[in-house]
Design a protein around this nucleic acid. Structure first.
Lengths: 344, 344
DNA sequence: CTGAAAGCGCTTACAG
DNA sequence: CTGAAAGCGCTTACAG
């Protein structure tokens, strides 16, 4: 019973083809006809059927957004809404919609992506993560389906369009920052190393140590899983070291606050006894005590540019491969302190 | 060039109709034929085209999720990923996908919903909010399109299927909780009153006051917009009252922490000088100082049940109207303190 | 500038 | 249990 292009055509005394062209605002249709047809469309409250249009035009005007739900929820919390907002802002401007997929396991994600691609559900895909040896990414690359990643790809970096922060650099910068505050014992609490973001930050940390001539020690590095299952005792152990750290770099603000809580139980005060700096700059981090020094990673931008890049590829299948690092800012608050050291 | 039902049919020596029935796992097809056809589908790597299937079958197997982005970002942060996770979990189980829409203005949301409905983009819609006098909701109700709300509707409560917390009750309970700790001066920092959730919580607060025989005073109520533009001076004013509150109920944990910061600047300590309790129980609230007493609203459940209800309606157009309040729990942490009062 | 016709890739009565 | 045919509601060469 819904009103179709035929109803409009009949009412307007034109052919369905003409109505279709009016919808597409085809320049070959006279303004007069357009006006007439539009008036009828309005009057009959006509809305084009997307399924039919997509089938005929072989495009869906929607982009698929894939999130890994293995990324810890903690990380998703602030990230997800912002990145989606960025994507939507760009997609909206080009009249694209968003098809969202949150697989459970990696396998489920893979299968859903395959069915999105093969089933022609979407015109392009944004991967909201970059993991090591990701078959979903490999698949997309193999079949040459338009896609974009938020996160530096682990492999084929030069063949894949992506957007990211320069995580190696920001980790490096953060260590430099602490170094210039006088810190020489700097620990690192990292993220899940299945994700490139975590690898990059660890690498930046290590490289910075080398650059300033500090030794890297495994005793100063706590692993994501380790921290999750055993956080409290790992922090205890860290602080019991002969040379305990005077500063900690944490992978995420949530992790930083968890650390701070454990430190408190040991009567170690931030920033007086130990400095801490982390990444991602959650909305709460400005308010709670101590206000956290954290790297703002411009999540909105990340999503916005990912969508822009994708749309370029969708509209021009041989658009050049692009990378872009969106700028970050170290937001200094009150979790770090300058310390005096004799050798400076 | 994609492989279609015809290619499969030819290869398997059956008709396209039969292939279609095998895809739908129609019981009238013999197991033998099914096996043969499935083997061919596998071999040719056949995947059904969704657009075509949807067009012919007049169903899309996707549900639309509408979020208001006027809800302050603060509120969305923890809410959004969890509620989506709940929706996806349910949708996935029934092989449904998610089409996400985040309009800018209310008008944009309305228009996108109309085009989703009329354009047959989705089989049903979940409104992730309930606002006062919402034309989007009114439209959905008018055209009798299957939809569900996360949030109690402002009007037509008995005609609309929704899921929510019992916000009046939890606000009431929270006031009771403070009352039993000895508090008699209880202030309320509310949310945006365009949303029913805020109205309900305010109402619960007021009702609880009445029930325990405490007066309601406008001086103890700070309005969302007021707080956003003027938070610090409003809190100052509140504390300068002849009878300043001994306890505050805050609309959200983020708001609570902002309040705590302003209080600190006034050298008012939580919980020693003033108690504070809030709603929504963010993931950070367990970690930061002071750990916040907050009502956990079971966000995952909210999303999960909303999707369940919707799917029922989609599959059975005259399914009964349903409401359900998902249970909440007051998570006691360290932001509230018992005080002694003479009249107890 | 406009129309008749074929086609997008499925589903589903209808018939046997 | 299976097939031939019509149809879902559009778009787009092709023709004029």
């Amino acid at each position: 019973m819904p009103v179709t292009i035929f109803d409009v055509a009949k009412e307007a005394n034109v052919s369905p083809s003409t109505v279709s062209r009016v919808i597409a605002d085809n320049p070959r249709i006279s303004e007069k006809t357009k006006r007439k047809v539009r008036e009828v469309m309005e009057r009959l409250d006509y809305h084009p059927n997307f399924q039919a249009r997509n089938l005929a035009a072989k495009s869906t005007k929607t982009i698929g957004v894939i999130m890994s739900n293995s990324t810890s929820l903690a990380f998703q919390n602030p990230f997800f809404p912002e990145v989606i907002r960025g994507i939507c802002t760009s997609a909206h401007a080009s009249q694209y919609g968003i098809y969202l997929s949150t697989g459970g396991t990696e396998k489920e994600i893979y299968e859903e992506v395959v069915s999105m691609v093969q089933g022609k559900k979407v015109d392009g895909i944004i991967l909201l993560y970059s993991r090591v040896d990701d078959r979903t990414m490999a698949y997309l690359k193999d079949v040459q389906f338009p896609f974009t990643m938020v996160g530096r790809p682990y492999k084929y970096e030069n063949e894949i369009t992506y957007i990211d922060n320069d995580n190696r650099k920001i980790a490096h910068d953060v260590v430099d920052y602490l170094y210039h505050l006088g810190h020489r014992q700097i620990a690192f609490i990292g993220g899940n190393l299945d994700f490139v973001v975590s690898k990059d930050r660890l690498e930046g940390y290590q490289q910075a140590l080398i650059n300033v001539g500090l030794p890297y020690s495994d005793a100063y590095f706590i692993h994501d899983e380790d921290f999750k299952s055993n956080g409290k005792s790992r922090i205890n152990k860290l602080m019991m070291l002969d040379e305990p750290p005077t500063a900690i770099v944490a992978h995420d603000d949530l992790v930083a606050y968890e650390i701070i809580r454990y430190l408190e139980e040991l009567s170690v005060q931030v920033p007086n006894d130990i400095s801490i700096v982390s990444f991602n700059n959650h909305s709460l981090s400005a308010y709670v005590k101590p206000p956290l020094t954290s790297v703002d990673i411009s999540i909105f931008e990340l999503g916005f540019e990912a969508a822009n890049f994708l749309l370029e590829k969708v509209q021009d299948s041989n658009a050049a491969v692009k990378h872009h690092f969106v700028p970050t800012t170290l937001v200094e608050r009150e979790s770090c302190k300058r310390i005096n050291i004799f050798n400076e």
